[in-house]
């Protein structure tokens, strides 16, 4: 069962990462940004936007399945830690630079996500204990 969760978390991160990379490619190819039909046609007229759709839909169904079965804390963390994979990939794929602000900001955000994941885990443990006590 543990292996099932781990696979689910990695799948969720993978779908989220695919979506973000595809969003960036799709947006860049549809520039300039306008509130117009022409912009929508540019967005949907190239393949990357469909990579984003696949990532989005895949992440949605993986998340719904995980929410029902997996411990919520790790699931929560897994659903947000794609910032790490996306940042690293954006250096490689888009030649972006990780300046000090981005690295420090990312560290604070990751620490925050871990705290929130731990808080969810603790709450779930408390719920389980009180449910056992009531039974």
């Amino acid at each position: 069962m543990k292996r099932f969760y781990l696979f689910g978390f990695l799948l969720l991160m993978g779908f989220d990462t695919l979506a973000q990379i595809s969003f960036k490619y799709a947006g860049t190819q549809a520039l300039p940004v306008e509130a117009s039909l022409a912009w929508l046609l540019r967005v949907f007229g190239q393949p990357w936007v469909y990579g984003a759709v696949i990532g989005y839909v895949g992440a949605f169904f993986t998340w719904m399945a995980l929410l029902k079965h997996a411990p919520i804390g790790p699931a929560f963390a897994a659903s947000h830690l794609e910032v790490v994979s996306v940042m690293l990939l954006s250096v490689w794929l888009f030649g972006e630079h990780l300046n000090l602000a981005r690295v420090l900001g990312a560290m604070a955000i990751i620490a925050g996500i871990v705290c929130l994941g731990l808080a969810e885990s603790r709450e779930q443990a408390t719920d389980a204990t009180s449910a056992t006590a009531q039974a």
């Binding site: 960036k24 799709a26 940004v33 940042m87 954006s90 888009f94 972006e96």
Partner: peptide, 13 residues
């Protein structure tokens, strides 16, 4: 999509 096309992806996420 519009947001990410205007700033670097690493900053956007």
């Amino acid at each position: 999509i519009a947001f990410l096309s205007l700033i670097p992806l690493s900053e956007g996420v």
